[in-house]
Nucleic acid binder design. Structure first.
Lengths: 256, 256
DNA sequence: CCTTGAATATCGGTG
DNA sequence: CACCGATGTTCAAGG
């Protein structure tokens, strides 16, 4: 069931919203296109002057305000917010309120181009691959890609300064700390690795502990810094593969 | 100008899109509500099974796919993508393509609940306050809030390990490094601060350099770590204020 | 162009 | 609930 009206007045919009959305807001998304201004107070504070935007109120209470460009919403409310509509001085007003953290957003419409309400059924979960976990898994299942004779003994090893992605020993039984970045390695990754190596030196009471930064891309400046600290690096390929189960589905579905 | 159709066929949807969106895609946003499946390949790879979603194609080429819950789009294409529509086996297909980085998304619809196209005019820019800059500004204009006799001499001081938020001297002329976090202080903030203090010690050739971490919230674990490294902390209030110019606008606009 | 760091980040996992 | 780290992070600013 989907309903919509075009170019309507505030009071008609309110009637429409009360009829098709209000009583079943948790089962019905609401969509408004109109000329509005927005005031937000919460973790920060913002004000957005008049302009034509798309507003979506989702079934979990989240609210999105989208300008005609940009991937990101210009304003929003988090999941779990409560929305309320009213008309004042012939202007439609949408108030959204969130409890913890306290956040409220007030949207005032002076023109309404479209209002639509729809019950949406969607139980599908996104199947995705190509993230850092995959890089870590790849190294675990194939440690010689980093170095011959490398043996991984622990994943997500907690030390004083944080959490080591991968820990193991090289062919000479020297401890090796591996920090994995899924894309660009930054200076802070070097600092992290340096801390971890020092932590291990104290923990194991060994003078020699190797530290290796693994990432698909490591800028020269970062390499230089690694050198200064007697750390190592290895540029790794990030491969994007879906599990076999999806491969078949994908194959049938898409021949791009 | 806003146009829409409800519960239509693929070929009618295509006709609608060609008439009201295709020729002027850079000036018209397109909105589709329908039952679709999505295949994405680019920086990662993903597959999303059938389900009812909202799709928005914006005037800058960005594409958003929203499920009925969650603030985040389940799939998307970045600004600058090119979209193309077709009908195959009576299914509407939307392909979106982005060049750098290479990313493509294929959306196949088996039912269409709503298609809407609209020219949106929005020149407004978001006025916002409450960010890290504001916390830094607050400390600059009111350093005694951190400590009596503190004098800030430099903002954004570059050192080997990165950039110091605030640098100054205490009442005993001892150098003070201040790291500011706008919300939660993390372990990495401690590591950052520690690096900066060491950098300054080398630069100035002084044995004593103080380091203070300033944040609205500092977990006990982080405080403990700061203690271990002989660093200090100060929990600061983050006040959210818009510049005076907007205050008036806000006052007139909203009496929440 | 590349690099860096903030964000009303959001979100999921873990203790 | 607090905390922690990844994200197809996105985005803006600076070199």
């Amino acid at each position: 069931m989907t309903y919509s009206i075009l170019n309507t007045t505030s009071s008609n919009a309110l009637k429409f919203i009360e009829k098709y959305h209000k009583s079943k807001a948790d089962k019905t998304i609401l969509l408004i296109i109109g000329d509005c201004m927005i005031d937000y107070r919460g973790r920060a504070r913002s004000f957005l002057d008049w302009g034509e935007r798309i507003i979506i109120i989702k079934q979990d209470g989240s609210v999105l305000v989208h300008q005609p460009i940009m991937r990101e919403p210009v304003n929003w409310q988090p999941s779990g917010s409560k929305t309320d509509f009213s008309v004042k001085d012939e202007l439609l007003i949408l108030r959204s309120h969130h409890t913890r953290p306290p956040e409220k957003m007030k949207t005032t419409f002076r023109a309404i181009k479209l209002v639509a309400a729809s019950k949406l059924y969607d139980k599908a979960k996104l199947l995705i691959s190509g993230m850092e976990t995959d890089v870590v898994n790849e190294i675990i299942s194939n440690p010689e890609a980093i170095e011959d004779g490398l043996r991984i003994s622990k994943r997500e090893k907690h030390v004083k300064s944080g959490m080591i992605d991968l820990f193991g020993y090289d062919c000479n039984h020297i401890p090796v700390v591996i920090e994995v970045k899924r894309s660009l390695a930054t200076i802070s990754a070097v600092q992290q690795l340096r801390m971890y190596v020092n932590d291990i030196k104290k923990d194991v009471d060994t003078a020699i502990v190797r530290g290796i930064l693994c990432a698909p891309r490591i800028p020269d400046m970062v390499k230089k810094l690694l050198n200064d600290y007697d750390l190592e690096w290895k540029e790794v390929e990030r491969q994007i593969v879906l599990p076999d189960d999806y491969q078949k589905t994908l194959k049938e579905f898409s021949k791009q």
